[in-house]
Amino acid sequence: MSTERPRVVVLDYGSGNLRSAVRAVERAGAEVELTGDFETALAADGLVVPGVGAYAACMAGLRAIKGDRLIGRRLAGGRPVLGICVGMQILFARGVEHGVETAGCDEWPGVVERLQAPVVPHMGWNTVEAPADSRLFAGLGTERFYFVHSYGVRSWELVTNGRTTAPLVTWAEHGGDRFVAAVENGPLTATQFHPEKSGDAGAALLRNWIGTLT
């Protein structure tokens, strides 16, 4: 049995808690490189797409390094991608902030919009409702994860054609408003929360994801 650790690229496109993401993925058992180089990221066993701040700014930074094409190329070849926070949001069709609509990567239909809760942003620890057969949340039970966001995907629009496996969608609730907390869809995985800020639970989740790379 090989003891070689999976090679993971944390994508550097000018957004996200890059160093904390690198450290967290390293601690979870991968060899990690922080880069925006297209070919290096394409060849890695796994790609992490972080993201913080405005949807439009993240998409502009991603497109500047052809990151949208990179994600599409990897997924076409069944190569795993993990989006985190706004790095999850940009995987959907579009985002709307302050009345401005921005096109996303369109890997999933759906719109990122402002949460309809009494207190926004949603900041702090929260539980999630994961499907029973989730690999990402395997062994995590009712653990809590750390969220910092004002926008999210509040309805799931994906319709399968009967030939593909339906994505596993994990939900969370803030102030009575339900939103997508994570998605597992073949090689494409994403979380609205920050695993790298979620202590032992986040570390276990990252280990689960890295376990899918081998």
Rank of each mutant, 00 (worst) to 15 (best):
171 W>K: 05
49 V>S: 10
105 C>G: 09
38 F>S: 09
87 G>P: 14
56 A>M: 06
22 V>A: 01
212 T>H: 05
179 F>G: 02
87 G>L: 03
28 A>C: 13
175 G>S: 14
202 G>F: 05
182 A>N: 07
64 A>C: 08
165 T>S: 11
182 A>P: 14
35 T>R: 03
85 C>E: 02
189 T>K: 03
177 D>I: 05
202 G>N: 05
165 T>W: 09
25 V>L: 07
140 L>Q: 14
185 N>R: 07
7 R>F: 05
21 A>C: 07
78 G>M: 07
24 A>K: 03
46 G>W: 00
60 A>F: 03
45 D>L: 08
87 G>V: 00
82 L>T: 08
66 K>S: 13
172 A>W: 04
202 G>M: 04
74 R>W: 04
89 Q>R: 00
63 R>E: 15
192 Q>A: 03
169 V>H: 00
56 A>P: 11
67 G>F: 05
154 R>H: 09
85 C>Q: 01
79 R>D: 05
149 H>C: 12
99 G>T: 10
61 G>R: 02
213 L>G: 12
129 E>I: 04
149 H>R: 12
178 R>E: 11
18 L>F: 09
133 D>N: 15
187 P>Q: 04
119 V>N: 12
144 R>Q: 15
160 T>F: 10
89 Q>C: 01
34 L>V: 06
139 G>D: 14
38 F>R: 08
148 V>Y: 13
20 S>I: 10
101 E>N: 10
84 I>M: 09
82 L>S: 04
207 R>D: 10
84 I>L: 06
178 R>D: 11
5 R>Y: 04
49 V>F: 06
106 D>E: 15
148 V>H: 11
114 R>S: 11
33 E>N: 00
126 N>E: 11
144 R>Y: 14
76 A>I: 07
35 T>S: 12
166 A>M: 13
138 A>Q: 15
5 R>H: 14
102 T>D: 06
19 R>G: 10
12 D>C: 06
21 A>D: 00
5 R>L: 14
122 H>W: 08
143 E>Y: 06
70 L>W: 03
32 V>E: 02
174 H>K: 08
117 A>M: 09
46 G>F: 04
185 N>T: 03
165 T>V: 15
171 W>A: 02
158 L>N: 09
48 V>F: 03
6 P>H: 00
34 L>C: 10
24 A>S: 10
9 V>T: 10
54 A>D: 14
128 V>F: 07
63 R>Q: 09
27 R>V: 06
71 I>A: 02
185 N>H: 10
175 G>D: 13
140 L>I: 11
96 V>H: 01
174 H>E: 11
193 F>V: 01
196 E>D: 10
130 A>R: 02
15 S>K: 08
196 E>Y: 02
95 G>L: 01
84 I>S: 05
75 L>Q: 07
194 H>V: 07
167 P>Y: 01
106 D>I: 05
211 G>M: 08
132 A>C: 12
171 W>F: 09
163 R>E: 14
214 T>Q: 13
203 A>P: 11
158 L>E: 15
167 P>I: 03
180 V>K: 02
19 R>C: 09
115 L>I: 06
10 V>S: 03
169 V>W: 02
142 T>D: 15
195 P>G: 05
79 R>N: 09
133 D>P: 11
43 A>C: 12
126 N>P: 13
31 E>L: 07
